[in-house]
Computed example of a mutant assay.
Amino acid sequence: MTLSAPFALVRYRSGGEVVLGLAAGERVRPIGPRELGASGLNAFLAGPDWDRLAALAAADGPWVPIGTVTLTAPVEPRQVLQTGANYRAHVIQLVASGLSTKTDASPEEARERAARLMDERRATGEPYFFIGLPACVVGDDVPLVLPAASDTHDWELELAVVIGREAFHVSREEALGHIAGYTIVNDISTREFTFRKDMEEIGSDWYRSKNSPGFLPTGPYLVPAPYVDGAALDIRLELNGEVKQDANTSDLLFDIPALISAASLTAPLLPGDLLLTGSPAGNGQYWRRFLADGDVMTGTIAGLGTQTVRCVAEPTGAER
């Protein structure tokens, strides 16, 4: 799926450097502080003047075909905030599986109970957040190296909010005014490391399971918020051409304003930061199929384009 907005921000490789660019249709051009009216990407996102870039997208300039450049991650976040257990169907799928194996309930009874739990959580609960490392944010131009320490590496295609104006203690009603745009992120997870085996009471270990190099493939576009309805976007991930995730953001337990408002109660969300909204159903853990050398993941979110991530095994021993 191609970009549907009239323009978007990108970053691409040029002469050994990464250049900020403006993509419009099938072409791209570099943009610097003079064109942005700001010192850099995050400074622009703090108060984005999309009309300025719309005029630039319609003007002559040093345009080149977008197929002649190598796009990389379109953002430079200082913070990455991730949301867990936020798609109703996904959580019901996981909870029902646990209930059906740990109780005498039938699969149908387990699903019904899980659905009631999720509806109650949506009505009275709070979003669940954890932190990712900005260093893991890469473009899909970088192959995903699968660490040799495990063979349980999983995919989680997600809609990511790109923060604009700083958000701290904002209400749900104010939240949308703090969004600069949206992008695609595939939140890679090593399932084997999600829960500590040496001390189960500690619980989840998101640091080890989600922060290996390149575990947040991002982009290729940063699409301005005025051109995106984050509440109703189709999300689809294919593994080697086979559909594994197929959902819509309307299934979010906590919508985007609720996520921003809740996250901002603890710490300021800064211009350019990423807020991942959660993974829909259809992860490798469900399919009992994890990532392997040579796999190709194609992730598409309506209006935001498509990212293609190629998996390679980590070199070991003499291969290094």
Rank of each mutant, 00 (worst) to 15 (best):
S189Q: 02
L270H: 10
N240Q: 07
R196C: 00
A231V: 08
A225E: 15
V170E: 12
N240F: 04
L274D: 06
G230Q: 07
F168V: 13
R172P: 14
E242S: 08
P224G: 09
A281S: 11
H178K: 09
D229H: 10
A262P: 02
A232M: 13
R196M: 01
A231K: 14
K244M: 13
S264H: 03
D187E: 04
Y227K: 03
R172I: 11
G219Q: 00
R236K: 13
D246T: 02
V228D: 07
L275H: 13
S264V: 03
A232I: 12
G230M: 04
R191S: 05
A247D: 10
R191W: 01
F195A: 12
L265A: 15
P268H: 05
P224V: 07
K197T: 06
D205W: 00
G177L: 04
L233A: 02
N248H: 01
L270K: 13
R236P: 08
D187C: 00
S212K: 12
P280F: 04
N211Y: 05
E200H: 15
S264L: 01
V243Y: 08
R208K: 08
Y227W: 10
K244N: 05
I235V: 11
P268L: 09
N240E: 04
S250T: 06
L176K: 06
P220T: 03
L270V: 12
R191Y: 03
D187G: 01
Y221Q: 07
E192N: 13
L274T: 05
K210L: 00
E174I: 14
Q245S: 08
R191A: 03
H169L: 15
S204R: 13
N283R: 15
N283P: 14
